[in-house]
Amino acid sequence: MIELQGLEKRYGNSFAVRDLNLEFAEGELTALLGPSGCGKTTTLRMINRLIEPTGGRVLLRGQDTQTLKPETLRRGIGYVIQQIGLFPHLNVAQNVATVPDLLGRPARETERRVDELLDLVGLSPAEYRHKKPAELSGGQAQRVGVARALAADPPVLLMDEPFGALDPLARDKLQDAFRDIQRRLKKTVIMVTHDIDEALRLADRIALMNAGELAQFGTPDDLIHRPASDFVRQFLGEDAALRQLAGRRAGDFAHPSDPSGLPTVEADLNARSALGIMLREGSDALAVTEAGRPIGVLRWSDLQTSAAQIETVMRDKTT
């Protein structure tokens, strides 16, 4: 869908991004992960040409983006930023309708689309359509931000730390909501983040960057279990496996078995918290229920599979 070929941005003698080669697959969410100053935002902004590269190419469906007018290119790409950037003088509906308006879509169609999108991001259109951005909480505002980015139904969505400015509770809820949206819409999403948990939780693939260069590109499992370098291992941290558990549902690990007499958890609880409950309750198994009905049992050993994989990989490497 999008291909970066030898992409480079230099300021004077220093490189913000250097010889970056990446391919973002259609319908996948790729996280651009890395410490601050690693060039991830610069990379993102070179894709919609908010920053012009000093070298290399960006191909969108095989077409060099330099052949397009920047405005035309950007209108076809959704854009969500940490500071949200809603227009304070326009109401929610007008904010969401911005790009369809720029594209000259008929007003009636846009109006319907706006309601659809507000529903999609979990805001009741009747209640929110006419509110001004100042009347929204941070979480609500960013929901509008996401709706605005999706308004013209762009195949590609660029997100720059979209949930970074929210409080932890709102961030969790919005991440969940966005994961659901992404499951339904299957957009090609590129998301800049420095939050490892967020990347492990949402991303199909992670491009980990360091000092303007690509450190590793792969699935979350690849990065955790097969780190390409010490930097990758250090950046993900000793508790990377735990972090990954945090991104999975307890229900995904459960096996059908007799749950009687075991402490009970909801299937939607994340696996890391389930592990915590095991430790607290002194039990090596939990009964998992979904909507009040038992669906199976989650055992300590089920969770260990991934940890065990790490050990085998490490053993293989050292021998």
């Binding site: 908010l50 950007r74 209108r75 076809g76 227009f87 605005r148």
Partner: peptide
């Protein structure tokens, strides 16, 4: 807001 406007084309 200006960055968003630019990003939206």
């Amino acid at each position: 807001a200006l960055d968003a406007a630019r990003g939206m084309g």
